[in-house]
Design a protein around this nucleic acid. Sequence first.
RNA 1: GGCGCUGUAGCCAAGCGGUAAGGCAGAGGUCUGCAAAACCUCCAUCCGGCGGUUCGAUUCCGCCCAGCGCCUCCA
Length: 484
Amino acid sequence: MTPLRPIQLYNTLARAKQTFEPSTPGRVGMYVCGPTVYSDAHLGHAKAQVSFDVIRRYLEHVGYTVRFVSNITDVGHLVDDADEGDDKIAKRAVLEKLEPMEVADKYYWSYFADMDRLGVKKPSVTPRATGHIPEQIALIEELIAKGHAYEIGGNVYFSVTSFEDYGKLSGRRLEDLEIGTREAVREEKRDPRDFALWKHADPSHLMRWESPWGTGFPGWHIECSAMSLKYLGDGFDIHGGGLDLQFPHHEAEIAQSEAAGHPFARYWMHNNMVTVQGGEKMSKSKGNFTTLKDLFERFDAMTLRFLLVSSHYRSITEFSEEPLKAAHSGYSRLRGTVAELERRIPEAQTGKTEALERQITHYSELFESAMSDDFNTPEAVAALFGLSKEVNSALTGEVGKDTLENTLKAFHTLGGNVLGLFGDSKAGGQNPEMLDTLLELVMDSRTHYRLNKQWSKSDALRDQLQKVGITLEDTAQGTRWKLE
RNA sequence: GGCGCUGUAGCCAAGCGGUAAGGCAGAGGUCUGCAAAACCUCCAUCCGGCGGUUCGAUUCCGCCCAGCGCCUCCA
């Protein structure tokens, strides 16, 4: 299928927006760096995953078939690069008195549960580093054979100076890179800037594998090269990840792959960070993060998603109480419009209302042109608000059923399918019918009070419900309720 | 020190050469028993500061100020 319109995207490699052209017409291969599973995900992880989820959804929306590969790192991520120490998973395993694989699995499931609540679609493939040791070894062997890597005492390093394009993604020149600042630089490296492909592990290590260089474990960067190439092939389309991974992680991925003779990703996309307290990056090491699980206690997951898509993926997202509350209110407004449409459709008269039909077309066009310009979600959201206002305004009068349905469809398609909002979060929790019935009863008796002008009683009922998060609204058509 | 980014109303946040989207908060109004929701109206002579280019700059260039990111692990 031919895309409806060309999509411009910002390619970090070119430092400019480019028209996206997949290597295979109609299909997109996309790889996004996933988390290292050793602790709970925070809002920053959510920003990355939601950003690329929206990009994926929009590509699908315009007609592409997307293969979306996102890895899980469950080994090889060293606490720091300088020592021979355990990796993060192993360290956590000792801490929690668990097997490393228990740690990895625990946070693996936890991660996907969080992403699920945020409406992030499942990847087409979720490769795990430990499941691809042979592929990583094979790639390292290619690099050694081509003279780009060398082995010393069971460790294998990538020779940075052997790859002339090193630095092309992050815009660094080799000579600018600091040499040997840190004390514990391994002296056995031929060049301090070289990075590990394979690390020797003595028997005390919890996770190790046999290799041509003895027992050990893979370096952090190699997994993404091996797994993306395996599932997407040479010269695949899009590689995404956080801006903080651009160097050295992504630079290393390119070096390892292309030095071995595999053209790597053609478009590189980087999401910016979530910040806190006026610009400070939210990160694990700074300890200034809020886990998603904590946030879910206080806010609807869709509110968080709304907050994230309200800023551009390449911009920072400032996170604090006020934006959070603003997101809650703003999102409720959009939801209110959708709910009102759903209420009105069953009782509306068949027919079209031309004026509103034109607005649907107008705002849909705005939405799509915003999204086609490097996935400008803030403008897309603005288009949704524009349509919302027009609809609400029109709904003060009569609107034909066909038009109501078209409007609802626009919200479901653009806000729902593309931005991933208005997910399935059905009001009423586990048993919506029971809640519905109970509230009918409450509202009936309250209506009785109101007809008799027993305001204190009817207001008491409303206040009581408000305390448990149920809002009653009296309208000309009767009383209605909503959660939160 | 090297590379790079940002600075737009009380808050969040688009725009990036043609005279400031959107949301939240706030003010007034309509509706309502009250409230809520919704709608209508208002809310940046101005986009960190100073110069420059241009008929014209928030948008391009230079300098300055402030904040931030990467160069360790990080989405």
